[in-house]
Nucleic acid binder design. Sequence first.
DNA 1: GTTTAACCGAGACGGTACGTCCTGTCTTGTA
DNA 2: TACAAGACAGGACGTACCGTCTCGGTTAAAC
Lengths: 233, 233, 233, 233
Amino acid sequence: MPTANVKSVDDQPPARRPGRPRGDEARVAILEAAYAILEEGGLAAFTIEGVAARAGAAKTTIYRWWPSRESLAVAAFLSVALPRISFSSTGSAANAIRSQMLRLVTVYSGKTGRVVRDLVAAGNSDPVAAAAFVESYVRQRRQAVREVLQRGIDAGEFRADIDFEAAIDALYGPVFYRLLVGHGTLDKTWTKDVADIVLAGLKPQAPEIKNGDQSRTGTKGTKARPDRVSRGS
Amino acid sequence: MPTANVKSVDDQPPARRPGRPRGDEARVAILEAAYAILEEGGLAAFTIEGVAARAGAAKTTIYRWWPSRESLAVAAFLSVALPRISFSSTGSAANAIRSQMLRLVTVYSGKTGRVVRDLVAAGNSDPVAAAAFVESYVRQRRQAVREVLQRGIDAGEFRADIDFEAAIDALYGPVFYRLLVGHGTLDKTWTKDVADIVLAGLKPQAPEIKNGDQSRTGTKGTKARPDRVSRGS
Amino acid sequence: MPTANVKSVDDQPPARRPGRPRGDEARVAILEAAYAILEEGGLAAFTIEGVAARAGAAKTTIYRWWPSRESLAVAAFLSVALPRISFSSTGSAANAIRSQMLRLVTVYSGKTGRVVRDLVAAGNSDPVAAAAFVESYVRQRRQAVREVLQRGIDAGEFRADIDFEAAIDALYGPVFYRLLVGHGTLDKTWTKDVADIVLAGLKPQAPEIKNGDQSRTGTKGTKARPDRVSRGS
Amino acid sequence: MPTANVKSVDDQPPARRPGRPRGDEARVAILEAAYAILEEGGLAAFTIEGVAARAGAAKTTIYRWWPSRESLAVAAFLSVALPRISFSSTGSAANAIRSQMLRLVTVYSGKTGRVVRDLVAAGNSDPVAAAAFVESYVRQRRQAVREVLQRGIDAGEFRADIDFEAAIDALYGPVFYRLLVGHGTLDKTWTKDVADIVLAGLKPQAPEIKNGDQSRTGTKGTKARPDRVSRGS
DNA sequence: GTTTAACCGAGACGGTACGTCCTGTCTTGTA
DNA sequence: TACAAGACAGGACGTACCGTCTCGGTTAAAC
């Protein structure tokens, strides 16, 4: 679908409204100040007044463009953190996921983890901001995982009948669980263990014989086995 | 040394400190008011002043016993929510887990879910309160799961070499993930799908014929109990 | 260069600082509420919160403009009580003082006396406010007395060598003494008696017969009247 | 007069009330702590809790014996400051007064002045304490002055028709005026000047030759006691 | 080339809640 | 009964931010 076309129709190409156009300096200064504060002091230190002061902007300017503290926090985060996801597109899908998880866990162990934690918490009191965060950050990342999963299915690494959403939640849920609840650390061994368990659960499996013999006939099927789908068993 | 003596000296846990003893009425009134507010209005509405007013207590009384808003929130939650976990102890371990997950998801879909979400967020700005929440609420629940997992291992349902912590995170992480991030609902189908994936990953599996490179079996001695495993096979 | 130009550039004393200018409504409302409370309930009832509530203003607004409870009290008093002193400028200086003292005592017997008492007490715990009170209220009144004294000296009613400050203190000290310590009432007879004593002490007098003559003749005054000093007796 | 006798009759001879008798240690400790705080930090620092803590006493003990903060302050002051007044009983009455004023001004320039100022202010919000202060401290001092004045009258130094109360207020009012209002310092020169003015006003004076209009002599029979005046002679 | 509408900074303002200090009352155990 | 200890309801403190509201002054398209 020609997106360009849509755009030229939808957006007002010359649609110049009268009056002074929005200056970019204020916007950028605010977002940078916002992110800096978020990273340095967390949500607690993140106040509109603080951001305004640090950005040399007026509170009103902030309120003009962002409806709430939370929205601003999310926007600040996105402006900094959006442009980076990466999956190794070579090798097995399982290994791609494994290595991406490790990378994520490394990132989340640092300042970014703190910030993400804060943003999720912030989302708690501003559903709109929460939605924005999910839509722009979470969803996107999940989409990338989904593609790798699909690749794995195509390659026969994974069962074909898996529910993508459930699978992604199973893979990344534990990471967020620990990040957010904080009952354990995000170390590499743990990450590998979790990945192993879930990836094992995604593999095409012998039919549930349940009596002990797991004779795995031809485990390595290239394609999913719809016939095995009989899940409920 | 006379034990009796030691005892008579040592054993005065309720040692009657001087001064007026703490009255229980205030404590109870405060916790009840706190929980009520938490449930009705969430963290946003949860203010010390609000709780004090509703409880008919003085702010100072609250501050005397709880160091922060967050601590109070956690305490209020625990005073209400602690006395209930339940695993069906009959049937297969997998099914016990499955049904418990469904029950949890049901609970978390209601008011309790909102509250737990708030508490996790609150923990974000008060590490002490967070620790209390984890220690008293999370840890306990995890312990229950751990026991069921062990039962499953003993019965040959699960692999013997699983890392308990990772397994528990794999099972319940997704639930918290959705609860906290809010990118999807906690419906039953999804719950079952997640459970299926993870439980499948915990099942004893045919040795990795694939490359053999992942033969990690038994390496993780600490967590798994090879001696007990007795190898379901 | 045209003077007009210079003027138009230079003459901007009220220089319009940036930002929303201070509104007068709040200021007036606060001062009025403050004075009302001060008059009704005295210092004890005079709380910032009370004033704010009564004025329909925010506490912060008060704190923005007055550094302390005491400052506000003084300001409130001054805004009401400043514009009134009056000395009869006819007749003898002594009589002018006498009648002014009577008027003062009358005023101080009423609500104003209570307020002044409170303000002096307040000054006790805020030196800055005390200074403001002295500077704007006390000093001004004393200046008026000083002028009358000078008139009296010029007219030969009073000695020329009197120390103005001491004289004023001698005249009005007793009034404040009774007002503040409260060991006696401010009645008219007493006032007259005090005035008589002190004014007698200010009159040109026969040289001290006691130990010879301390002829202090014309030492200090601008317009002393040595002729009168010369012993009427 | 045998005071001891009176006492043994008046006080409860064996009148032992039941229960633990009042210990003097607490009383003394409280008064000492109270005075210390009063002297160190003024009224602002003078809190019941502070005194209790410093005295190692319980708040209740203080409330049992003193009805208010102000009463305690006055009591503490009196317990320390009562036992000292002194007039030189030799020389002229005028000089006795002069030197006593100087001594008073010296004392009031130090810590005692601060404390007296505080007590007068305190009296403002507790009439009972104010009365106690006046009755026990002020009145007593004034009585001493009254005696010296009488001596002066008897010796012909002062007019016989002076109103004692007015005279005392005229003499000491200025000192309190400056002490309490703080518009000037209590230095020696000023003190002498004031004393000179007022004492001059008390001297027997030549009949008003000027216009004769002020011939008021002897009109004020009520206050002066001509009959008593004759006495000393 | 003037209008004119929006942008932007500054800061006043009414508010809410904070966490602290002190008040005056009470309840308890010990002397 | 006196006393120390300390819980408790409550009132006010002074502070930090909130979100809204004037203001003065840009700034650039539209008239």
